[in-house]
Amino acid sequence: MTVPERPVRVLVCDDQALVRAGYATIFAGYGFDVVGEAPDGTAAVRLARELQPDVVVMDVHMPGIDGIEATRLLAGPDAATPAKVLVVTTFHTDENVYEALRAGASGFLLKDATPDQLVEGVRTVAAGESLISPSVTRQLIGRYATRLRPSAPAPADDGPLAVLTPREREALTLIARGLSNAEIAAELVVSRETVKTYVSRILTKLDLRDRVQAVVLAYRLGLVSADG
């Protein structure tokens, strides 16, 4: 007997009631379980810790604690049990993306995303992968990582990357170039399941939470560069 898959549990955080209601309607229509709604960052942190949703959909600009700080408290390095946070905002600026990634967000979308893109974003983050809006290019992630890069980065075959096999290094390079699992599979001529195994091993060996952190690390270590 097949056990039905549990619905994705979502916490919606936005200071506008109409936006929260819109998200809740969209998510319910796709079979998600909206476990709560938060009108500000303080409530977002409290409810996320209390309800333990699969994904926290977080606005950036909210009263009190803003979405970036709330994300840091829920998903940052000091979080006991890091949450998966998808930041959704109307503000498309480098600094918002930089700070969201630094705070620990697993994904970043703009509010002009379609319902299908929003739903797919939640599914992607819930599955442990990362998502950056198509409007936010991988060059932007590269510029963020470059800001953190040491003045003399270690060669790509030294340091943390030494624990990876050559094939895993190839996969990490393709991840950092912004390719999906399907595109990586085609590039390496392997199955998608094999790519998933590579990704899982990369994250485990490098002690990374998700693909966003893997991309940032690849740029920081000079495995890839912002200019491609």
Rank of each mutant, 00 (worst) to 15 (best):
E170D: 08
S130E: 13
V119P: 07
G64D: 07
Q213L: 01
L51G: 00
G29F: 04
G22Q: 05
A38K: 05
P153S: 10
A83P: 05
V119R: 02
R167M: 15
T25W: 05
R102F: 09
Q52V: 10
A43P: 00
E183V: 07
D116H: 06
P153L: 08
T146V: 14
A214V: 05
A43L: 10
A127E: 14
A75V: 09
P77Y: 13
T173S: 09
L47P: 07
R169Q: 13
D157N: 15
R123L: 07
T90P: 03
V216L: 02
Y23A: 09
E193A: 14
F27K: 13
Y198D: 13
G128H: 01
G128T: 00
G121E: 03
T137H: 11
T137R: 15
Q117M: 02
A156M: 15
G107Q: 00
D94K: 12
V163G: 12
L110N: 04
G159S: 04
T146L: 13
E50K: 10
P155F: 07
A48V: 00
L51A: 00
A21T: 04
V199G: 10
D66Q: 09
I141E: 07
V3Q: 11
D78R: 03
P155I: 11
L221M: 01
A226W: 01
E187H: 12
G142H: 02
L140Y: 10
P77E: 14
S130N: 14
I65T: 14
E5K: 00
S151M: 13
S200A: 13
P63Y: 15
V85L: 13
D207T: 06
D14K: 00
V199T: 06
R209W: 06
L221S: 04
A79V: 06
A185R: 00
P160H: 08
A83W: 10
A156N: 07
R46A: 11
M62E: 03
R211K: 03
R147E: 13
T197N: 10
L217S: 07
L118G: 09
G121Y: 05
R49M: 03
L51E: 01
S200C: 01
P7A: 08
P115W: 04
F27N: 09
V199N: 04
L179R: 10
A43R: 06
Y219N: 03
Y144W: 09
D210V: 01
I26N: 05
L203W: 08
D227E: 09
R49F: 04
E170W: 12
I184P: 06
G104H: 05
A38S: 12
L208M: 12
L74T: 01
G67E: 09
T124Y: 12
H61Q: 14
I202D: 12
E95A: 14
T194A: 14
A17C: 08
E187S: 15
A162M: 15
N96E: 11
D54P: 07
D33M: 01
E69D: 15
P82K: 15
E170I: 08
E37K: 05
